[in-house]
Write a protein that binds this DNA or RNA. Structure first.
Lengths: 212, 212
DNA sequence: CGTGCGATGTATCGGTCCGATACATCGCGG
DNA sequence: CCGCGATGTATCGGACCGATACATCGCACG
């Protein structure tokens, strides 16, 4: 999961570890607390060993002649390689069952802008199926085994069931939206509605290697 | 976390591993998928080594004279010890910050029937604070950094923000409920509303070691 | 009658990720 | 001038997962 997220983020721009963590936290804030350095740094090492990222030189643009002053040692900047981009595309393509658990789905969803529509649809439907199963399990417990459980546990199940139903509805909207048309957000005029991304970094690509 | 849940469950009745996993899955179904045996068995070993649980004899009640037929080898039944109960009480008492993350809170909540009211309140408020912080973080991102993120990521944040707001409201109700009166469920006439648990296993205790 | 399959049941191994901890530098306010 | 919070890199032990292996039981189907 972390591997996927790092490769995804580094495609927008090269970064060093600390920065990476901040961006990761901002992008995935909705689904997980914060990436630990205890996972981040070893993973960076692993990705580098695999040849998917490389260390890049500091201060690439505006190469002024201010070299020796406060030499800025430390600050290892990482950059994704061509193999890394391939790896990322491959990880997107093989959306297995682990893609549908809470964390896995969230991370994949966060990079939907780099995922082709067919895969987006596949992931959304896989996730929906998984949540529907969880929902049925909770309904079973609340129905059949309700007497065996204390009131607090039942309340917890109810709250969980509610969250499941809500997520299924959310997914339904996203799926419908995805099928007809391409707008990412649900029809919600007012906030940041139909605006496309107007930022510079990558010419996104949107559809990657789709067959006609 | 697993340690806590196992000690909590074994207080209701002795069980073997497989059964334990099923009960765990039923009780915690709302918050996590299913406990892996890769965590369960090592943890059982650890708890046994610490003296908090022991192996118990098979078929304790209804000791018929059907011994040698299908000897039922395997099936290690575990039973909590007095030290184990102390340990559980101690784990409840020291509700630290890790008690407020998603999993930790859920597990603690599932055993609120064995937790005194003061601690219940403390945990609920700690959780609320944590969720409020997450909510503020998401609002910040959706407000200030919205242009930097693509529409899918924003949609994810919106969904997460919605879940936060909903959970805060849920916690508010539970806290209010906890403060005045003792009913575990929110005032919801209709389903399994005011019914107390009417089952046999443990004479619950409800308030454990509360000081007047 | 047998046989095969799904549920029950115990167990290990490698790998991912977390939480605590350590340490060093930079800029700024008191 | 000094301390403190933000920035920044790094390691270690431990918790938990997913895959895998293996053995038994009951029963349905041929």
């Amino acid at each position: 999961m972390l591997e996927f997220a790092i490769l995804g983020l580094l495609q927008e721009s090269p970064m060093h570890g600390y920065e990476l963590r901040k961006e990761l936290t901002a992008k995935l804030g909705a689904i997980r607390a914060a990436i630990s350095y205890g996972s981040l740094y070893p993973t960076l090492r692993r990705l580098q060993a695999a040849g998917w990222i490389t260390e890049a030189a500091e201060t690439p643009a505006t190469a002024e002649e201010v070299p020796a002053l406060t030499s800025r040692r430390g600050r290892v900047v990482y950059k994704i390689t061509a193999e890394g981009k391939e790896r990322f595309a491959q990880l997107i393509a093989q959306a297995g069952p682990e893609t549908y658990d809470d964390t896995g789905f969230g991370v994949h969803f966060a990079f939907f802008a780099r995922t082709d529509q067919a895969t987006r649809l596949r992931i959304l439907e896989g996730r929906r199926r998984k949540i529907e199963e969880r929902r049925e399990g909770l309904r079973d417990v609340l129905g059949r085994a309700a007497e065996r459980l204390d009131a607090y546990t039942l309340e917890l199940q109810r709250h969980g069931l509610d969250a499941c139903e809500r997520e299924v509805r959310w997914l339904e909207e996203l799926i419908a939206n995805e099928r007809s048309g391409r707008a990412p957000t649900v029809p919600n005029p007012g906030a940041a509605g139909g605006r496309r991304e107007d930022n510079s970094p990558p010419p996104p690509g949107e559809t990657r290697n789709e067959r006609p």
